[in-house]
């Protein structure tokens, strides 16, 4: 029992002592004669078997490469042609075959045929000799003294200021990345203006009666490129007029149960276009903010803090929907310069 415990807890006593080496990265190594795998040098039969296995794996790589090349040249590839969808998987299979052959062959080779003995190498001490360290510090100090910097305060201060001012150099260049503009003004404006018709995604104006109750339509301002304007996308919703609750100040913003909201989420700007026609919920697919379309897009759930801005609409002489003007508050996410007074208007 005591022998076995000594065996179990055998410390590094069979490790030959090797003292500090000259070259940090090249400390001498000593074998412990514990092999990682049986030495096949004296077992030609098993060695031969191992060699065959390793070679077979290496040759598998050739098969993979041939398959890859043949696939690349000959397999159907053009979209829509028969079996074109097998092209990429075939490339993958053959490349995997080739790489697995080489990779596992190399590992198997190392694990069977190469001599692989456990080896001990001493670590060098990382910290320098205290004497060297002191000398280095001394040299640094001396050099600093010799430069005259500690004594000449004008020099010291001017070099600090001069070198520090260099940090300003890139700043004007950074400002070249964008135009100078009044951020709040830019962010408050969208493509909508008074009299602008509500166009659908194909550029056709939307008429009263196009939507049935429970219908929704993505609408865009009637300006060039209106559909691609990132701040102007809006959603026209039709519900039963009695379901729609608006504050008195917004009574004229809706038309016979039709109401328009900005779809740009007031949280992080995703298009809020999931509309549940029975619950009147508008739901953002990015972070699940939920708005009540029947109640001025009030926030019901999720991280958004503000209602979706509402666009006032009316109907022109030809029966087409038109905007009464731009949104009365900036659409989309919050920003520092956004005046709290915008949101005070809600429900006023």
């Amino acid at each position: 029992m005591s022998d076995s415990i000594r065996d179990r807890l055998k410390p590094a006593e069979d490790t030959p002592e090797v003292h500090h080496a000259e070259h940090p990265a090249g400390d001498p190594v000593v074998s412990t004669h514990h092999a990682y795998h049986p030495d096949l040098r004296n077992d030609p039969k098993r060695a031969k078997r191992a060699e065959i296995a390793v070679s077979a794996l290496f040759l598998l790589a050739v098969v993979g490469v041939i398959g890859f090349v043949v696939t690349y040249i000959a397999a159907p590839f053009n979209f829509g042609t028969a079996n074109y969808q097998t092209f990429t998987p075939l490339l993958g299979i053959f490349m995997t075959l080739a790489l697995t052959g080489i990779g596992s062959g190399a590992v198997l080779w190392a694990k069977t045929l190469m001599v692989d003995e456990e080896t001990v190498q001493e670590r060098h001490h990382l910290a320098s000799d205290p004497k060297d360290r002191a000398e280095t510090v001394e040299i640094l100090k001396e050099g600093f003294e010799e430069s005259g910097l500690p004594r000449r305060s004008l020099l010291r201060n001017s070099i600090l200021l001069g070198a520090g001012s260099l940090a300003v150099l890139p700043v004007p260049l950074l400002f070249g990345l964008g135009r100078f503009q009044h951020k709040e003004a830019v962010l408050s404006k969208t493509g909508w203006k008074a009299g602008s018709r509500l166009l659908d995604e194909l550029g056709r104006p939307v008429k009263l009666g196009d939507l049935e109750v429970g219908g929704v339509k993505s609408v865009f301002p009637d300006v060039p490129g209106g559909r691609r304007m990132a701040d102007s996308a809006a959603l026209l919703i039709r519900m039963l007029p009695e379901d729609l609750h608006t504050s008195p100040s917004r009574k004229d913003w809706v038309q016979e149960g039709h109401i328009v909201y900005s779809v740009i989420c007031t949280h992080l700007g995703c298009p809020v276009k999931l509309y549940e026609q029975q619950t009147h919920h508008l739901f953002c697919p990015c972070h699940q903010s939920t708005f009540d379309a029947a109640n001025e897009a009030k926030v019901l759930f999720g991280p958004a803090a503000r209602n979706l801005p509402q666009l006032a609409i009316s109907v022109d002489a030809d029966g087409y929907f038109v905007a009464q003007g731009d949104f009365t508050e900036p659409v989309g996410p919050s920003f520092w310069e956004r005046k709290p007074s915008y949101s005070d208007k809600v429900g006023a």
Binding site: Y36, G105, W109, Q121, R123
Partner: peptide
């Protein structure tokens, strides 16, 4: 035999290098 002052393992050449190279391909 492993202490704070030594490293016990395989030498980088050839077996370890073959294993690491093989691992890259895998």
């Amino acid at each position: 035999g492993r202490t704070e002052n030594n490293v016990v393992g395989s030498k980088i050449y050839p077996a370890y290098a073959a294993k690491a190279g093989g691992f890259f391909f895998l």
